[in-house]
Amino acid sequence: MTAVEKIGKTVEEAVALALAELGVTENKVDIEVLEAPSKGLFGFIGTKPAKVKVTLKKIDPVAVAQEFLQNIFTAMHIEVAIEKVTVDEGVVFNLRGQDLGILIGKHGQTLDALQYLTNLAANRDIEDDRVKIIVDVEDYRKRREETLYRLAERLADKVKRRGERVVLEPMSRHERKIIHMALQDDHRISTYSEGEEPYRKVVIALKR
């Protein structure tokens, strides 16, 4: 349901009924007064009620995401420039500024949490056509991916030399996927994950 028409003694009453049915606040709708209330003969005979049409505003999830991030940065008292780029997976917000390591955290854990919350905010009122927001800081994700690729190759060589499996430190699902992809074409190596979230780890071992 994107629009409703309601009748009330006053415009305000009709709008309130419409908002209650839609389950939203007034700032999320457009209001059109179809019929203004009027008093009839002697102030009550033939009185006409108010009639309104209340329509949900079209939500731009990307704009919602950007506003959400900006509000966080304002609360943190940090100046951040947001570069917005559309990619196949969704929309990337690459954050640039001074001393933004606080937004990254250990191995990107803070950044992943920020990205998760931003996607929740952006898609909160959307049922279909949800957008994926990727939050990055100074191209950190690309640098981290390159680091993980090198790490995977180095540890795979170690496994081949020693014949013993290597267990990596706990990683996010995205980072575990990078390790698996880095070694998927190595015919001597197999990779798999073990453990429970958030302590799930990648294991690199010789193929049997």
Rank of each mutant, 00 (worst) to 15 (best):
D136K: 01
A152K: 03
G90S: 15
E153W: 02
R130G: 11
R176I: 05
E164A: 01
I179V: 14
I134E: 10
H180W: 04
Q115C: 02
H107V: 08
Q109W: 03
D157A: 13
L103F: 02
L120F: 08
S172M: 03
I102Q: 07
R143V: 07
D88C: 03
L120R: 11
R161N: 13
G163K: 05
R154D: 02
R96Y: 01
G195Q: 14
E153G: 08
R124S: 14
L103C: 12
L111P: 11
L183K: 04
K132S: 08
L103Y: 12
I178S: 01
E175R: 03
I133Q: 06
R165S: 13
E169V: 03
K142D: 09
K142C: 00
T118V: 06
K177A: 01
H107K: 13
N119A: 06
E145W: 00
E194R: 10
K106F: 05
R141M: 09
E194H: 10
Q184N: 09
R144C: 11
A113N: 12
V137L: 12
V91N: 15
V91S: 13
L155Q: 10
I189F: 13
L103H: 13
E169S: 02
N123G: 04
D128I: 01
D139Q: 08
L183E: 02
V137N: 03
K106Q: 13
R141V: 11
G97K: 14
D125W: 10
L117A: 14
I102Y: 11
L168Y: 01
E146T: 00
R143E: 13
G105A: 10
V159M: 09
I133T: 11
I133L: 06
